[in-house]
């Protein structure tokens, strides 16, 4: 880990942290989704977020991804305030949501070509081929997205998120619907962008074992707050599981 450069050269002046959240709150009318999130993710770190359904995981990720505005609080992504300069944040983050974000009647290639143009990428076809190859999907270029299985759609969706070679990756339960082979692939490709640095990743998951195996840090989100935060290296699966039980009242 230490042998790899943690910072991309051009990001060094963008602050010490890849992701920073301070007292972030979000409410919808009378319903509070987030009740004061404090989060610091250093460059090159992999943060795994665990939490029951409705704990605010998705809301937190959507706020970091510029898809939602916090009701209050402060956010920095690569040192940039997304409320002031959302386009700059959007350019450097890759996002995998629950939905594949694909048009069913377009082919995989057309879908990715569309997104490549939305990101105004140079040499889009090269990038598309690279990303698809990394996920073992290179032979599906001409297939309509609608005809792909759920897992295959998920792979294309991850390829879509990696198209513009983002330095920060935000993923909301990416393993759901993926077969174990794809999950293995995911772990390799996620962390190794084209340059020699490590990607910063924030991932929510229900898969405790996998989340601990790939993560540097693990957090548990309960009732809209970060209730637990530890280095993955220092904890066992059993410990995290029992803490999770105590905090959320449900099992993993």
């Amino acid at each position: 880990m230490a042998a790899v450069t943690l910072l991309k050269p051009e990001t060094q002046d963008k602050g010490q942290l890849a992701v920073l959240a301070r007292d972030v709150r979000k409410s919808f009318g009378r319903v509070a989704a987030l009740r004061g999130i404090d989060l610091e993710v250093p460059w090159g770190q992999f943060l795994t977020i665990l939490g029951a359904n409705g704990s605010g995981k998705t809301t937190l990720l959507r706020i970091l991804a510029t898809l939602a505005r916090p009701t209050s609080g402060e956010i920095r992504v690569a040192g940039i305030d997304p409320l002031r300069n959302a386009p700059a944040v959007r350019r450097i983050i890759g996002v995998v949501t629950h939905q594949p974000l694909l048009y069913g009647d377009l082919t995989v290639g057309e879908n990715l070509a569309f997104y490549a143009r939305m990101y105004d990428l140079k040499r889009p076809h090269e990038k598309i081929a690279q990303c698809l190859a990394a996920l073992g999907m290179e032979r599906r270029l001409e297939v309509k997205a609608r005809t792909l299985s759920h897992g295959m759609q998920k792979r294309v969706s991850i390829a879509r998120a990696l198209l513009h070679d983002p330095i920060i990756l935000l993923m909301d339960e990416p393993e759901s619907g993926l077969d174990s082979e794809a999950v293995e692939m995911l772990e390799h490709t996620l962390r190794s962008p084209s340059s020699d640095s490590l990607r910063t990743v924030v991932m929510t998951t229900h898969n405790l074992e996998r989340g601990l195996a790939v993560g540097d840090q693990v957090a548990i989100l309960a009732d809209g707050r970060i209730a637990y935060l530890e280095q993955c290296a220092g904890v066992t699966v059993a410990e995290v599981r029992s803490t999770y039980m105590a905090l959320t009242g449900s099992t993993l």
């Binding site: 409410s27 009378r30 509070a32 009740r35 009732d223």
Partner: peptide, 13 residues
């Protein structure tokens, strides 16, 4: 009232 409701929920939570 909405804000109070939120505040209350927060304390209980």
């Amino acid at each position: 009232v909405d804000a109070l409701h939120l505040f209350n929920m927060q304390r209980r939570g």
